[in-house]
Nucleic acid binder design. Structure first.
Lengths: 341, 341
DNA sequence: CCGGGTAGCGACGATTCTTGTCGCATCATT
DNA sequence: AATGATGCGACAAGAATCGTCGCTACCCGG
């Protein structure tokens, strides 16, 4: 039996098993995990591999302050197999540009190793012009970029893990009034990132009903000894549609009819509102008639409002009325308020 | 000299040098690249490694239809070193949810291997509940999710590479009127992804001025023999601020003063509009007074419009006037148009 | 049609590396 | 203080690596 082929593969497995810095793994545990994966290996060999071989060629460090030594990679070390190609690296950088306004910094930090290897590749491609690429790529987000909520790194990691491994959490939560610290046991059922705020959906203690918890208001989170309870019949999509995050969204789509400015019409030919969409020019003006089947949700309404006077809603009537009411109310308020204070 | 340590590292280097499927690399070229990196290795050894060792343990295929054999990985193969942890995998999935509405499908496809390894990890975490995680994570985007523009995979890859490697492109471009096919030589200077449309900024032929080209209107792109010309003094940020993508944006920020509904006030405490922002309650109502230093751009104005009657702009006067004018114009248009057609 | 050049591959043997074992030192824990 | 766990140097048997040689197959140009 040529066992040697195992060697290469065993090394790769080891490299995958050793975590990045905040994490660490002790030699015996690593040995155990390798055994689980079918690598019958001597304790001594493992030690030799770690110290003599791998750590010479990888940013691998060892915490030898206590006796079962613990090994870990440098915080930002990352390696892709196969290596990134240029278009993928560019995609990653572009994705980061967008995500900066959408996810808490800590969550993006989770991607740092990936992003760094992308940046590194791009740097190498442009040996001459120093980091030109950073000046050549921009993302302009769709809506107003709010500043994402601050959030502790450990909180995010704990919550993510609890959600996925189906474990209960003991949390200290700062209630909305900013006054009370409350301690709950949560049974995570889902996670929703909305605009720039991330919410955990969970049942509390022994109750059955789902509640929302903004992640940035969780002050401490630990895995609980209480067994996790699944909320039977919970369906995230239905929950969102039910209106938990704003405007109640009907399951049925609606037929939108509107008159739009030429500029908006042009925009819509490039990025349609919906799969089913028609634009027909008017004979007597350069505006166009838009007809589209769109979801009946807050986002669509926002989009229409954001277009301002460039779009005139004809149908559905409810939206037409909403636009009128909103415009009238704005005027009333503007008239009422003094110009300055 | 123990040379063996080289072996492991050489394998890793090989794994990095072999591209994913659409790409391929021939044995002699691979040999050359390994030599460049200091691995003095015999031709025979390389052949043995590829056929005998690596391809046994990796999804590596070989195109042996022609004589310099060409090697490549399966299209979706990907391996992270060190392996992803659960929170990072969740972050990737969440990022994908957001990006689906922001980047053309092809561009996201570029990330498929990464995303797949994330999904795979999550699947493994939840052995019992079959792929529960997919039902437990959602992103609700900030604005209306338009359908991203369609775009050819090869076009994206070619453009990305040309931009970063500073090469000129010969493109066939479908001009805005959808009538004419034009052939240009472009000298890429920058890339801007705006909402869901991606634009290449480039000078054309021998001209000096920068023009925008929507990627989805590029029908064919090839590297040009013409040497790339840098547009001296071009600065992407200045260009965007100059108003090339809509509302001209002044460098100076403005001081926004507005009265906001309690609900909006609450939203703003969680995700502020800007670093400098104050909210002060009014004594005689539950509305609050918002004061913030915000950029003078289209996005901010959109955000204000999207809020409808929940926000009353006090300052700057230009915006207040804009809100009033927009509201009046909407009313006028609604009155003018028949209710239905 | 034919030959030179290139690439793949089997075989082989010397070199080199790998790996289990043993013994000892060190550290942690009780 | 004792016991068990862990780290590590040394060693030798066994295994794998790697360059070389020779053969074959294929591509191309003459």
């Amino acid at each position: 039996m040529s066992e040697s082929r195992d060697t290469l593969f065993r090394f790769l497995t080891m490299l995958q098993l050793i975590p990045r810095y905040p994490g660490r793994i002790s030699t015996p545990v690593l040995l155990e995990k390798l055994r689980e994966r079918g690598f019958i290996i001597d304790n001594r060999s493992l030690q030799r591999d770690l110290r003599g071989r791998i750590s010479q060629y990888f940013p691998l460090s060892c915490d030898d302050s206590k006796k079962p030594y613990r090994w870990f990679f440098d915080r930002d070390y990352h390696c892709n197999l196969p290596a990134l190609d240029v278009p993928s690296a560019l995609t990653l950088v572009l994705a980061e540009e967008y995500l900066k306004g959408l996810l808490p910094p800590v969550v993006i930090g989770q991607l740092t190793p990936h992003l760094q290897s992308a940046r590194q590749l791009l740097d190498e491609v442009q040996r001459n012009g120093l980091s030109q690429w950073a000046k050549r790529v921009r993302a302009i987000p769709n809506g107003k970029a709010l500043i994402p909520a601050r959030l502790g790194e450990v909180i995010w990691q704990t919550v993510a893990q609890a959600l996925l491994e189906q474990r209960a959490l003991d949390v200290t939560y700062l209630s909305r009034s900013r006054e009370e610290h409350k301690i709950f046991t949560l049974h995570p059922q889902g996670l929703v990132s909305r605009h720039s705020v991330t919410y955990l959906l969970a049942t509390v203690n022994d109750f059955e009903d789902i509640r929302q918890f903004a992640l940035q208001r969780i002050e401490a989170a630990d895995f609980s000894d209480t067994p996790w309870q699944e909320s039977t019949g919970f369906n995230l999509d239905e929950y969102i549609r039910g209106g938990a995050f704003g405007y109640p969204q009907n399951t049925d789509d609606v037929r939108l009819i509107a008159h739009v400015e030429p500029q908006v019409a042009w925009l819509l030919t490039v990025t349609p509102l919906a799969e089913e969409q028609t634009l027909t020019p008017f004979p007597d003006s350069d505006w166009q008639r838009l007809e589209a089947v769109v979801p009946d949700d807050q986002q669509t309404l926002w989009w229409l409002r954001g277009m301002g006077a460039s779009v005139t809603v004809i149908e559905p009537k409810a939206w037409r009325d909403d636009m009128r009411a909103t415009a009238e109310k704005i005027l009333a308020q503007l008239d009422q308020e003094p110009v300055s204070s």
